[in-house]
Computed example of a mutant assay.
Amino acid sequence: MIEYLLIFITLFILIQAYFAVADKYNIIDKPNHRSAHSQITLRGGGIIFPIAFIIFSIFNYKEVMETYWSFGLGLLAICLVSFIDDVRTLSGKIRITVHFLSVALLLNFTGTFSAMPVWVWPAFFIMIIGTLNAYNFMDGINGMTGAYTLVTLLTLFYINRDIITFTQENFIMYALLASLVFLFFNFRKKAKCFAGDVGSMGIGFWLIALITLLIMKTQDYRYILLFSVYGMEVVLTIIERLMMKENIFEAHRRHLYQLLANEKRMSHLVISAVYALTQLVINLFLIHSELPVYAIIPIIFIPLGSVYLFLKLRLKKKVQSSVIK
């Protein structure tokens, strides 16, 4: 317990040091017509996640050299390219190449390559890169990434401790502590910092690694549903944009959380809390249910999708009526 307190304090001090650097070198997020915020805010606060892994490596050097080295290389590579992209835009070819290499290192770390036939590997690459980008798409308002991440990590910590051990406890705890430090500065009406690509990609990579380890250990693919809320929103939003013949790779404001924040003027913190609590309810049902995955999926997605579509249609009608007026 003392160790975790010291790590928390260390992370707290280090993120403050980053703020000084970001302020000096003007690493900021300027709001534009697509933004859900209106004030200039420090960008890249999510750098606390790769920093947390570096500290984890220092205190667990032997385990990292034996087990976690490929995860660490993948995490640091994807965080580095994401941080550079936060500061100055990189070409898509560079980003996707690093993402591909990082995912390969992650699959090596989780034992997926040795456990699965070669013809399945491409599906894992597509799913993981898609999930990473979905995590990035959903990082748009104060508290969203931090709160959702905290719920997911707490669920994984509970599963690891009380249901089935699939990784070293510290490997989850360091991510949890980093998430709490980030939330302290981001879960505010006027956020001190945003995660940036380095944060959303970094913690997304860490969570995917943990969930993949869990799936490899249990051979239970229902744990993919720990990303239910994010997954459903991103998939439905992409379908909507494809139907409207929009470029799905361009920035937009069609996510439900964006409409709630921008059109309904709801509090960012309320929206983020609702998303996180919704996922928490799903997680509690998921880990305590004995139903097979094919029965769990409709139980989760039919009501969740119905609420999503109802709210989306109401908000779109409101936007259309305001334009007409």
Rank of each mutant, 00 (worst) to 15 (best):
G72Y: 11
H99G: 04
F53K: 02
K93I: 14
T97M: 10
Y148V: 15
T67V: 14
G130P: 06
N170I: 06
Y174E: 07
E66R: 02
I96W: 01
F124K: 03
L76N: 08
W69K: 07
I55Y: 07
F125I: 12
I129W: 02
I172C: 07
N136E: 13
V98I: 15
S102M: 10
L154I: 13
I126T: 05
M173F: 14
L105H: 02
R161T: 14
Y148P: 00
S114A: 10
A147R: 06
T112N: 01
L153Q: 09
F56S: 10
I129V: 13
P122V: 12
K62S: 15
S102N: 07
R88V: 15
F59A: 03
F49E: 07
N136Y: 08
D86E: 10
V81M: 05
F137L: 12
Q168I: 14
F49G: 09
I58E: 06
A147V: 13
P117Y: 03
T167Q: 01
T152W: 00
I141Q: 03
R161E: 14
A104E: 06
K93G: 05
G111E: 11
I164M: 11
I164S: 08
L80E: 01
N108K: 08
Y135K: 01
N142L: 07
N142G: 03
L90A: 00
M116Y: 05
L90W: 03
G111H: 07
L177A: 09
L153A: 02
A175P: 01
L176A: 08
A123N: 02
L132Y: 06
Y61G: 00
Y61S: 12
Y135F: 15
G146Q: 06
F71M: 11
V120Y: 11
